[in-house]
Design a protein around this nucleic acid. Structure first.
Lengths: 154, 154
DNA sequence: ATAATGAAGGTCAATGATGGTCAAAAATCA
DNA sequence: TGATTTTTGACCATCATTGACCTTCATTAT
């Protein structure tokens, strides 16, 4: 669907492997050649789609025999995971970041898709109807933190 | 009926596709070219004829390979009941009356107990952290209405 | 051991490709 | 006519692509 640009295609390719492998090691220029793009585009894809916020850990080594390793973090320790999430939310948060957080909660199976959708509906600017954007983002952050905190005890 | 102006024609074109497809992804400038109008007219059509009130969900992405996706939400009856509930909520609502509303939604099976708990967690005074009680009640009402409105579809 | 060389990966800023906003002008409606 | 809706276009924001230049590491030659 939304795979018209090369970055999306590369992202899908890598995530497909990560769905089965839990960790991959790639050669930047090889992958770039495979998708007919410049090597630095691989960095772009990683920087925008494999952030720690999104649950990925990336390491690399330069020089001969260099590599880029992408690891999908597993949230074995739920409490720590939620702590990190709350820290990431902070005291103010935009709607798009909110949606990313909810998406993560879906992936870790702490929320169902329907639940996330219900919550997203309420956290919209349209729903909140708070003129001052900063106030809106603060309220959103407060509620999101309350939600995530509440998830600890279920 | 069949509009005389371009906006109506574009609306009809998109809705005709949506009658069979449930979701479409368009390229703004392509569609604009197709109908001989400026790209921003597509935004106008969407803003006036594909609102959430009318049961549509619109997402978009800018940049290379960008798109506008329009999704037709599936309707669920209960309309009558939801209308009354929204009216009952009004423009401000206390936490206890909020909890009663959620309880009703559980009883009509529009929400599960877990969903209601999650929502209640977020709608608390502690969660909102808004000093001015009246502002808090207004925000709560706004969100609750957005939620109930969202329950019209699924 | 040291220096030179080649083989990775990293950064960043310019450019291109989309979509978004807003307000004025034009058309239409009541 | 006055109000509302539609049409346009100038200007903006965001995302993607590319390439020149930089840093790091391993290997080879001296």
């Amino acid at each position: 669907m939304a795979g018209q640009n090369i970055s999306d295609i590369i992202e899908a390719y890598l995530k497909q492997i990560l769905a089965a492998e839990q960790q991959i090691e790639i050669n930047r220029s090889e992958v770039a050649a495979q998708f007919n793009c410049v090597p630095s585009q691989i960095n772009y894809v990683i920087k925008t789609r494999f952030t720690t916020q999104q649950g990925y850990l990336v390491e690399s080594k330069r020089g001969g025999g260099g590599y880029i390793r992408i690891e999908k973090m597993q949230f074995c320790d739920q409490d720590h995971y939620l702590d990190r999430l709350i820290k990431a939310i902070g005291t103010q948060i935009t709607l798009s970041r909110t949606l990313m957080a909810l998406q993560q909660l879906i992936e870790t199976e702490l929320l169902s898709e329907r639940e996330a959708r219900l919550l997203a509906t309420m956290l919209t600017d349209e729903a909140l109807q708070i003129n001052d954007q900063r106030v809106a983002e603060t309220v959103r952050a407060n509620m999101l933190v309350a939600l995530v905190d509440g998830l600890r005890y279920r």
